[in-house]
Design a protein around this nucleic acid. Sequence first.
RNA 1: UGGGAUGUAGCUCAACUGGCAGAGCGACGGACUCUGACUCCGUAGGUUCGAGGUUCGACCCCUCGCAUCCCAGCCA
Length: 564
Amino acid sequence: MSEQDKTIPSNFIRQIIDEDLKAGKHGGRVHTRFPPEPNGYLHIGHAKSICLNFGIARDYPGGLCNLRFDDTNPHKENVEYVNSIMQDVRWLGFDWDSRLFYASDYFEKLYQFALELISTGKAFVCDLNAGQMRDYRGTLTEPGRESPFRGRSVEENLDLFNRMRAGEFEDGSRVLRAKIDMASPNLNMRDPTLYRIRHGVIHHQTGEAWCIYPMYDYTHPISDALEGITHSLCTLEFEDHRPLYDWVLDNISIGHHPQQIEFSRLNLQYTVMSKRKLTQLVTEKYVTGWDDPRMPTVAGLRRRGYTPESIRLFCDRIGVTKADNSVEMEMLESCIREHLDQHAPRAMAVLNPLKVVIENYPEAKVEELKAPNHPKDETMGWRSLSFTREIYIDRDDFLEQAPNKFKRLVTGGEVRLRNAYVIKCERVVREAGGEISELRCSYDPATLGANPVGRKVRGVIHWVSASQGIRAKVCLYDRLFNHPAPDADKAVASFLEHLNPGSLRILENAVLEPSLAGAAPGSRYQFEREGYFCLDDHSHGGIPVFNRTVTLRDSWARIEQKKQ
RNA sequence: UGGGAUGUAGCUCAACUGGCAGAGCGACGGACUCUGACUCCGUAGGUUCGAGGUUCGACCCCUCGCAUCCCAGCCA
């Protein structure tokens, strides 16, 4: 782990653990778990949970954190998701060692505990269908009614449940229910379903071994207990389920009772975080896949160029509480800038090329200039730039007439070419339509590594040799939605209406400095004055594709924006 | 209108558990600069949801309100 991870702010959960340790609870052990359902890719909200659970395990002496797939609903789950989740957790920098588990590992034990609940009269087989069960459940303000099947004998229940397992009954015809309290103000306690029947699905781990599957509320506490988990951390919506979590463990013969603690999930502005909605974006092709660089998924952020360090830093900074929250994108962006500023080598790339001919520079000459890879870190070494008579600069870096505040190239003005000479714009060449096709400039040979005497240049701009540069495609990403809380806006029928049509801009004619020729897929650079970019790892052969991770902070753009 | 939770700066969180309300991000201004970046310096921003109460003293304890979020899957 890097230095950034060393000052982890505490939070209310760590305080609880501190107190538990002091009180000697759980024999001084700290054991957490990260329990994803493999029905989608991990997103930044999961990263928060991963950093919390694995972070606690890392920071407490002897602490452990399991990876456990909560795979009780084979209908929506598959191995692609299992694999992506393992890859993402590892990429984030965490390790479960040999403690990889599946809730489905416990199906037989879960079944035996169900038999125990039946035997002690605490569970029964119910023949009500889904609609009837809803009727019997009552409402938020009225108590429910007991199922007519609630009074079945232990023998009959045992027989029926065994036959459920044996496959004698159709989907939906029967369920196993806990016998708790149909009048409870907590709906989760109104005789909740423990097992349902699911024929004809092939479970990714257990195949066709089972046709009955346990529910989350029943599976989770037992899985936690079986694994010796001490602190079972989950999100706020499970707060109402805690009495049921405790009920299950209090009513079976199991020697361990973990403590469930809830925290609030992460919301990030200008994106969505629900798996259902992310899945919809993927399946309905609003994005190119789970790893589309605009997605808030771990895979998307990775392809976008985010580093594990930056995401961990983000998770540390947002903290862990029980308050609903909505974090600004700027917080995430500041984290990736902070990490990449230190670690990304610098390079030059011209995104919107404008040709510049330096008239007093020899035609065939190619001059190799040395440039540091990082302005503040010599250990990152040097690279070679090729300077030639014809170069490209960015169209945005030239204006025919500009206010004094414009620190770039203007007609008749001088500007420094980064790591090279000072040039002066002598005149503008236009196409028939009036558009500027190229600039004719002169250069001052005395300005390499030295300031011109007696005058000040307006500023510094980046450039790339026209003949030596490499053609590239560059993808500029913007927020996926143009509403801070797309899925919370009740004024529209669907969050999709807030999709930002300009979230991807592709520049086909960018030019990179020659040193970028051997760049490895996934490698990250700062293109000076532009932002941080990452060589897309889906691009092999052909012309390279760079994804913009994030722009540099740009006070000039901000001033310009304010004028409008 | 039942139950469960949460309200501290624009956003995210602190405040050693009753002792001068702070930080990061953001905003604004300035210095530096061969990146309008980085870095550095500074400024603004608070009725701690509200009203009462207890106390020498309340973000913290009590009472009553208000607002927001979650719960009526054989999803997790």
